[in-house]
Design a protein around this nucleic acid. Structure first.
Lengths: 108, 108
DNA sequence: GGGACTACGTGCGCGGCGCACATAGGTTTC
DNA sequence: GAAACCTATGTGCGCCGCGCACGTAGTCCC
């Protein structure tokens, strides 16, 4: 498959830590970077990732206090994890290159 | 301005090291990552970057042996460098997050 | 003389994304 | 108590970035 889109990598990264529902992914991404992810962008990206078997919707969830039954939880698949690792490596190389170009300080 | 597109960051990163012409940028990017950048994609991205004052076409060049007069050299501008630094920082944060998610080994 | 490489560029179509909007229950604010 | 906002998921529409193909043209190699 081609390279993951930035938004797709963000989603996989979010799900690599723990299973999350769509809205929680939006908040997680917002808490990291500054960029706000539009709902349309996110839910459609989740659809693509599901179709490509990078992500798997979780059938059911215990409904405890504070749980919203509207939520659809997602988990990362082995395929998704593999792709995320590859993309993370690519980005790490890019960051190293940025250090060599003195865009970032060495050993920060 | 919005976040730099991946291809735009790659170009700025390439030009941050030294002034280059379009075709040399393609080769530079190809030598780093695996992805081949299509000519249409690159030259149009260069146009956008020029219009946004991230990059500046260099008027003239000494024509020595091995120099091709068809070449159009580009240099990164202060604006472009600033944007590239911001993007590099964002990516570094992302890579750190990938380490925390155990997608990458710590201290690699 | 056919092919590969260098170098820059345009034309076209697909699809991803931003923005707006729909729906709807819960909570906070004046 | 109504208006505003938050949570939560999703669709519709239009712009435009990108991949792919193609055009042009010089050089070099066998």
């Amino acid at each position: 498959m081609a390279t993951l889109r930035p938004i797709e990598f963000e989603i996989l990264l979010s799900l690599a830590r723990e299973e999350r529902h769509g809205y929680a992914i939006i908040q997680d991404i917002a808490s990291r970077g500054g960029e706000t992810v539009e709902t349309g962008t996110l839910y459609r990206a989740l659809q693509r990732l599901t179709e490509g078997d990078f992500v798997r919707p979780i059938a059911q969830r215990r409904v405890g206090p504070g749980d919203d039954e509207r939520r659809q939880y997602y988990a990362i698949t082995p395929t998704g994890r593999h792709a995320a690792v590859a993309e993370a490596r690519r980005l790490a190389v890019l960051v190293d290159a940025a250090r060599e170009a003195r865009l970032l300080p060495r050993l920060a």
